[in-house]
Amino acid sequence: MSNGEFKTMVGEFKTQALILGGLVACFWIIEIIDIFFYRGALNSYGIIPRSPVGLRGILFAPFLHGNFLHLATNTGPFLILGWLVMLQEISYFFVVSAITILVSGLGVWLFGAPYSVHIGASGVIFGYLGFLLFRGYFQRNFSSILLSLIVAFFYGGLIWGVLPSMPRVSWEGHLFGFIGGILAARILPKRKRV
Rank of each mutant, 00 (worst) to 15 (best):
A98W: 07
V162A: 10
Q88W: 14
L42I: 02
G107F: 07
W160S: 15
V10S: 10
E89F: 03
S122A: 10
I145Y: 13
I47D: 01
G22P: 10
R193F: 12
F13K: 15
A152W: 04
R168P: 03
I125R: 08
F153L: 14
G180Q: 00
L42V: 02
I99G: 01
N67L: 09
S44Q: 14
F176P: 09
L18G: 11
V95T: 15
F154Q: 06
E172P: 11
F13Y: 15
R140P: 08
V85I: 04
S144F: 03
S148T: 07
G112Q: 01
M9A: 15
L183M: 07
S2T: 15
F154S: 06
I90D: 08
L64A: 04
H65V: 04
F154R: 11
F27P: 06
L183R: 03
F68E: 15
E172L: 03
V95S: 08
G180M: 00
F153Y: 14
W83R: 09
G130I: 01
A152Q: 02
G157V: 02
E12T: 10
W160P: 04
I90L: 11
M9T: 15
S51A: 09
I35P: 07
N141D: 11
R191W: 13
P164R: 06
G157W: 09
E172M: 08
L183Q: 13
A185G: 05
F94W: 13
G123R: 13
V151W: 04
A152S: 10
G57Q: 02
F134S: 02
F142S: 12
I35A: 14
G112K: 01
I179Q: 05
V124E: 01
S104L: 11
V169M: 14
M1W: 12
H70M: 12
E31C: 10
G180N: 09
G46L: 02
G181D: 02
T75W: 01
H174F: 10
L163M: 08
V24R: 01
N141V: 05
Y38A: 12
P62W: 05
K7Y: 14
Q139Y: 13
Y137D: 06
T73P: 02
V162N: 05
A185I: 00
I145W: 11
F94M: 11
G76S: 15
F36R: 13
K192Y: 13
L110W: 12
P164I: 02
G181H: 07
S91W: 06
F13S: 15
S122R: 09
S144Y: 12
V169T: 13
H118R: 05
S2R: 15
S165A: 05
R186L: 10
P189N: 06
L149T: 14
F176T: 05
I182C: 07
L20H: 08
L20M: 15
G107P: 03
E31A: 02
L59Y: 01
E89C: 05
P49R: 06
M9L: 15
G66H: 10
S44L: 07
K190P: 10
L23N: 12
F142I: 11
A61R: 11
L64N: 11
A17R: 07
N74I: 04
V103W: 05
F154N: 07
G156R: 00
L55H: 01
P189F: 09
L106G: 08
I58E: 11
F131C: 02
A113N: 10
F78H: 04
G136P: 08
L55C: 00
W109M: 03
V151Q: 04
G157P: 01
I80F: 02
L146R: 12
M9I: 15
L79D: 03
